[in-house]
Design a protein around this nucleic acid. Structure first.
Lengths: 309, 309
DNA sequence: CCTCACAATTTCATTTCTGCAACAATGGCG
DNA sequence: CGCCATTGTTGCAGAAATGAAATTGTGAGG
């Protein structure tokens, strides 16, 4: 019970030994593995020293397995095989997205072009099991093992270890149904907005955020007297189309979604602060291939929308 | 078919990963493995870099397996298990001789104390399959995978890479049955030997070797006129006991083997050159435990004989 | 909300390992 | 029997890994 000093053999050296034994000589093994024969020689003798016994009885011409080496070779081969399987697995995974992809989406934006991106992703990689989680709460990427979270914000959400990539930025504007405008009048200045009905997006138990309008350095901040808040842009858009009031939308939204002339830009000179779509991941590099693919499709899809549609 | 660059993951790192994942934190893994956590951290990130994807999503407080890591852990665990088995095998083997032991013995001496040594070895290590090869030819240790060869010679047989260990040295003398001496006379000087019958050991197609007698600096060289040669000391001994002539034996032989007064020393002042028993192995260190044990028993047995019997 | 304790990472000097090239050694060939 | 092609080993300079301590970062509790 004295020496429980586990005798840690280096698995790599065992695998090397398997290669050498299979090759039949250090030189051939050197050619196959790409390692210089000096290294092979030294690693092999080191392994033998750790084992306390020779594995290969070798001279410059011959290379004969010891009885011990023969038995050890069984282990070494299994080890080598398993290591190869692991490497192949890693390699294959890197090449072809597979498995599952957990994405957290903001429900208030899910109906946006995200739907198109998801559709494209699924068409392109049908083997990947998509798990889309539309939850209002700010999910914990690590704890809940999300690969990716899509966030929408004006500024970059600096969450410490989390890394955000900008997908696309879209400036916002105010829109209203033209029937609504005809009935209640079209605002000419921001101050005119006060008398109108505002359809505002509020996420969570948010405080009522003001609209921040800007025009070539000019700024205006305020909100209509009557406000209808909801936590779904899709709903607000629908309400705007139905003529309930003036709604703040991004340009992308008005184009990407069905906007068959129902909405008209209000105060076209004045813009809302641009809204950016972010992809948030835990760590910048070493993402799963699925994640990479998803981000790429997201980016392509939205860039597509911006330029051509 | 372009990049067949096998992506050689380091098996040791994978095993380390398994340890870390099982431990649940780098610090605990550090305690278990004895490696500093700095090393664990670096090796893990290196492995992840090679894989191209994270295995463990870790912060200072939590450590969560990635989906990829979970799958990789399967491989890593198998690898770790196999490596452990290999290490255990090597360790166990070093502790307890097992398996087989191939020994080449000189047939002309096999009936000597070697028989006793072999008996003791087998009693002590019954699990070891002994393969005793009594062949007159000088065997190729490496090619025929002998663990050990016992050689008997006056001088050290320097065979290049082979290593010889001296087991014991025994001076030789001339012996004869007392009835023989009574009938044919007891030699008083070496020259008296000429008229006698010599029983001489000749190995192979050897030339007739002379007896080389020495006494305090004096030397005498010659052979009886009538000589009976054989390649077995046992046979010569038996013939000597039966009174066929004067036989050259080692002191050990006359004591170790049953010598119940049948033989008497002839010319007790004159000695034959000492004969040494050698153990020849391929390489000095890293012998199998069986080999070590056999050499040790051989040495103990023969030393035993010399001192106490 | 701020602070603290613990965990992972990084820093830097040291040790170890690598890789090229020269060396030595072995066994087949003429 | 001696030469020589081929193979395993070793020397040395440079590169990489290692280990102890400082640093950074995280999450729970006051």
């Amino acid at each position: 019970m004295a020496a429980m000093a586990t005798l840690a053999l280096h698995a790599d050296d065992l695998i090397l030994f398997a290669h050498i034994a299979d090759a039949g000589s250090l030189t051939r093994a050197s050619d196959r593995t790409g390692l210089p024969k000096a290294t092979l020689s030294r690693r092999l003798t080191a392994l033998e020293n750790r084992c306390g016994e020779r594995l290969l009885q070798r001279s410059t011409r011959r290379m004969v397995l010891t009885a011990f080496g023969e038995q050890m070779l069984e282990h070494a081969r299994r080890l080598s095989e398993e290591a190869g399987a692991a490497a192949a697995f890693a390699q294959h995974r890197q090449r072809t997205p597979r498995g599952s992809l957990r994405v957290a989406l903001p429900p208030e934006f899910a109906e946006l072009s995200l739907a198109l991106a998801v559709t494209r992703f699924h068409a392109r990689y049908p083997d990947v099991r998509l798990e889309l989680d539309l939850s209002a709460r700010r999910v914990d990427l690590v704890a809940e093992r999300f690969d990716l979270a899509v966030r929408v914000a004006t500024r970059l959400p600096d969450d410490g270890t989390l890394v955000a990539r900008r997908i696309t930025t879209s400036s916002g504007g105010l829109y209203a149904n033209r029937n609504y405008l005809r009935r209640y009048g079209t605002p000419r200045t921001p101050d005119d907005l006060i008398r109108h009905v505002g359809l505002a997006l509020v996420i969570g138990a948010g405080e009522r955020q003001k609209w921040l309008l800007s025009r070539r350095g000019e700024r205006w901040e305020g909100l209509p007297d009557r406000v209808l808040v909801a936590n779904s842009l899709g709903l607000l858009h629908a309400l705007g189309v139905r003529g309930l009031g003036i709604v703040a939308l991004t340009e992308r939204f008005t184009r990407g979604l069905a906007n068959r002339g129902e909405l008209e830009r209000v105060l076209p000179d004045w813009n809302l602060p641009p809204i950016t779509l972010w992809c948030v991941t835990a760590g910048r590099r070493l993402l799963s291939p699925q994640t990479h693919a998803f981000i790429e499709i997201l980016r392509a899809t939205l860039a597509d929308d911006t330029s051509r549609r």
